[in-house]
Nucleic acid binder design. Structure first.
Length: 359
DNA sequence: AAGGCGTGGCC
DNA sequence: TGGCCAAGCCT
């Protein structure tokens, strides 16, 4: 069989998408789009930032909560930092939340409330990189820009049977992706190729039998689809140790710390604690008769495992707060405002009373 | 430019 | 159950 042209390939995929497009809270489906309905760039941007390295299932509820609470970019731009960070808690990669707010303020206060509609304009925004800029340009503004995310990398490496490992081969895959991106319906095409990767051309046991691109797929012909894309091996994660200190006043207020903007869990609220190092240590926030809780928190970050002990004590009268510390009254404290590792420490506290009762 | 940066689901 | 993976960005 002769090779299919780029146009034939993209039209085949768009035909598949017209039938099988997934429904999502931020998506304008192909039928509505065909009648002239256009996406809200604010919602597309919000969804794309949330979807960075994050599953659709995890994003849906966060997207709904954010866009209900802050329906426009100006609403978000005028929000309190702490409210946005608390709303993001649990979604991970917290630099995204800080950049989300930074970006909203740029758009609202420096760009007249309108998102840039060009690739370069979008790329200049905080938290918007090559993938997200192309996604917004194509999906929100129907510009013919090629998206390259993990799905597209996998689809391209298989369609063209490319065995060179990621991330080195990324520029080649980007060229392939660009060669297929159509001038017509680029927004639908971008979502189609990602839907294909997410539902058919999956990492393990791809469903080649029902794939609209089974005929032109080079890896399918060679029987190598399931082993692509190749990736350079990852380093093993070390294990680190630490202690979190959960302390309350006699009135029931909780002692929490705002973490510095840069670094792990940047900008988030958390319990006072030790550094997380190669060996256990102690560093309580005040001198007291600390009780260690039974059990421990196990948590895995991107690049290390953590084993966290939890200690608790009564906060003494007249305790002086550092600027980064706050006493949150019971009524104003929600465990769901904490990043997951800190919420796990809270859960341990809730479930396992200390060996010694608090005074 | 290679490593830092979260979390939950899946097998 | 431990590693892999998810619509990556920043420095």
């Amino acid at each position: 069989m002769r090779d299919l042209s780029s146009t034939e390939l993209s039209e085949t995929l768009l035909g598949w998408y017209d039938i099988h497009a997934r429904s999502m809270p931020w998506r304008i489906g192909p039928a509505d789009r065909a009648t002239g309905v256009t996406p809200d760039p604010y919602r597309i941007w919000m969804s794309e930032v949330m979807l960075q390295q994050t599953t659709v299932a995890a994003v849906k509820e966060y997207f709904t909560r954010f866009t209900t609470r802050w329906p426009t970019v100006t609403d978000l731009a005028t929000a309190e930092d702490a409210d946005v960070m608390a709303e993001w808690a649990g979604l991970g990669y917290y630099a995204r939340a800080r950049n989300l707010l930074k970006c909203a303020r740029v758009v609202a206060f420096e760009l007249g409330g309108q998102f840039p509609d060009t690739l370069d304009g979008l790329l200049a925004l905080p938290g918007v990189g090559p993938y997200t800029a192309a996604a917004i340009a194509s999906i929100a503004f129907d510009r013919s820009e090629a998206v390259l995310d993990g799905n597209v990398e996998r689809v391209m490496s298989r369609l063209f049977n490319i065995h060179d490992p990621l991330p080195g081969v990324k520029p080649v895959l980007k060229d392939k992706a660009a060669s297929l991106t159509p001038a017509l319906r680029p927004g639908d095409y971008a979502q189609a190729v990602m839907d294909l990767g997410a539902t058919i051309c999956t990492p393990k046991s791809p469903a080649c039998g029902i794939c609209p691109w089974v005929a032109p797929c080079a890896a399918r012909a060679e029987g190598t689809a399931a082993e692509l894309p190749k990736k350079t091996p990852k380093k093993p994660k070390p294990t680190r140790y630490g202690v979190a200190y959960v302390a309350r006043t006699t009135e029931g207020a909780w002692l929490l710390e705002r973490r510095p903007d840069k670094g792990l869990l940047g900008g988030m609220l958390g319990w006072p604690g030790t550094d997380w190092g190669d060996a256990p240590s102690r560093n309580p926030p005040f001198t007291a008769d600390w009780s260690r809780l039974e059990g421990e928190v196990k948590h895995t970050f991107t690049h290390f495992h953590l084993i966290l002990k939890v200690e608790t004590a009564r906060i003494p009268e007249g305790f002086n707060l550092r600027p980064d510390q706050e006493l949150l009254p019971q009524a104003g404290f929600k465990p769901s405002d904490l990043p997951t590792v800190m919420r796990k420490a809270f859960d341990l506290y809730q479930g396992n009373p200390p060996i010694k009762a608090l005074g």
